[in-house]
Design a protein around this nucleic acid. Sequence first.
DNA 1: TTTGATTGCATTGTACACAATTTAATTTCG
DNA 2: CGAAATTAAATTGTGTACAATGCAATCAAA
Lengths: 150, 150
Amino acid sequence: MSDKYEGLKLKNQLCFPLYAVSKEIVKRYKPFLDRIDLTYTQYITMMVLWEHKCLNVKELGEYLFLDSGTLTPLLKKLEQKGLVERCRNKDDERILQVTLTKAGEKLKEKAVDVPASMMSCVHLEEKEAESLYRILYKILGEFSEDAEEG
Amino acid sequence: MSDKYEGLKLKNQLCFPLYAVSKEIVKRYKPFLDRIDLTYTQYITMMVLWEHKCLNVKELGEYLFLDSGTLTPLLKKLEQKGLVERCRNKDDERILQVTLTKAGEKLKEKAVDVPASMMSCVHLEEKEAESLYRILYKILGEFSEDAEEG
DNA sequence: TTTGATTGCATTGTACACAATTTAATTTCG
DNA sequence: CGAAATTAAATTGTGTACAATGCAATCAAA
């Protein structure tokens, strides 16, 4: 029955639904994030900063799985908006410290409803959400290990 | 214990691991796809064409969850590579039909090992893979319904 | 201590993604 | 029929993503 091309069908891929769902969910964030004038990538960057207050570019990249090619222009934009400050570490001039401004800290108040608003866009049972979460972090964990070895 | 900002922590998001895993897996496709000179998006586009032979831009977009803004330049690039032909439908000039060339059809032979190669990059148990697949398609299904309702 | 390697970030170039708008073709309806 | 609405692609503008490269600061080791 199954020809040798069966594996090349879109519906037999695991990556494709991941890719599609990820994009579609990010798209559904837009109306909520428009209200606080952030893109999705800017939003998750702010989220890490809200939790950790001060991080350098490398640390941000490790949390977000993004490199300096993405983060450098993004952080400059957040600086333009007055949400973060970028300043070199005195002890090691290579390191760029990113800290929240007062406006950046304050934006947290306006963002607090976003997660709950988003939950209403994806209808999963508690068990499914937990299962999805666990499996995704299992994969991410392996990828992080690869990065440490590599 | 849990303050009102608990929901804003990265680790409490379901979207973030989706976004990160999706990107990381696509990244891991690169060495395999380089061999056949395709990007990931070009690869999934070819995959749909290998299965359906001839599709218009709208149909491709529905399969791939992509719009003409992404597909138009991508299809022009595949045409440049000699993998597809783009020609207007005679009965309705608005519609652009995309068909495989012989070279495009032949590339399927070289791509046949890609899915198996990729499987070795993500270590999931059969049950986990099935569960992940089912949940993702459940979400995608809802999103498709939303699109139909408009 | 000096030079060779490494590190942290920035830059460049290519390729998506998608919202918003435009254009041209077709359909619908008064 | 003929104007208005709809549809399918293409275009434009903004914002990621990331590989590859560049560069300055720091580290390491002989």
